[in-house]
């Protein structure tokens, strides 16, 4: 278990780590990086995987330290052309229902 880590909102980290200043200052070499993971659902005996992209600002501060901040928003994965979102949500709802049935079956 990690030591107790507080959950912070975007405003709180902007303030606490002075991110506005850090991201805008040209002294810090900030590069935009991405990491793509997936969301897979089981559909007709095959796995169907939709990519999920996460965006990070990777900055090297003037004191030599490195700070990585995640910048993923709802717009990052909004390109609907490759994703059949409705079908994916149906499969998720089915999985949830099956999981609950199994849970109820196990506890009864």
């Amino acid at each position: 278990m990690a030591p107790p880590t507080p959950i912070l909102s975007k405003d709180e980290i902007l303030r606490a780590y002075k991110l506005d200043k850090m991201l805008k200052s040209p002294d810090n070499n900030c590069t935009l990086k991405s990491l793509t993971q997936f969301e897979c659902s089981f559909d007709n005996g095959l796995y169907k995987c939709n990519p999920f992209k996460r965006i990070f600002q990777d900055c090297i501060l003037s004191n030599g330290k490195r700070q990585v901040v995640e910048m993923t928003t709802s717009e990052t994965n909004e390109d609907d052309s490759l994703i059949d979102k409705r079908r994916f949500m149906d499969v998720q709802a089915d999985l949830k229902r099956i999981y609950e049935e199994v849970q109820n079956g196990a506890s009864s």
């Binding site: 980290i13 969301e39 996460r54 490195r66 700070q67 901040v69 995640e70």
Partner: peptide, 11 residues
């Protein structure tokens, strides 16, 4: 990595 500020679960 240690020190990074990340979202818990954007998905």
């Amino acid at each position: 990595m240690p020190g990074d500020l990340i979202l818990i679960d954007p998905s």
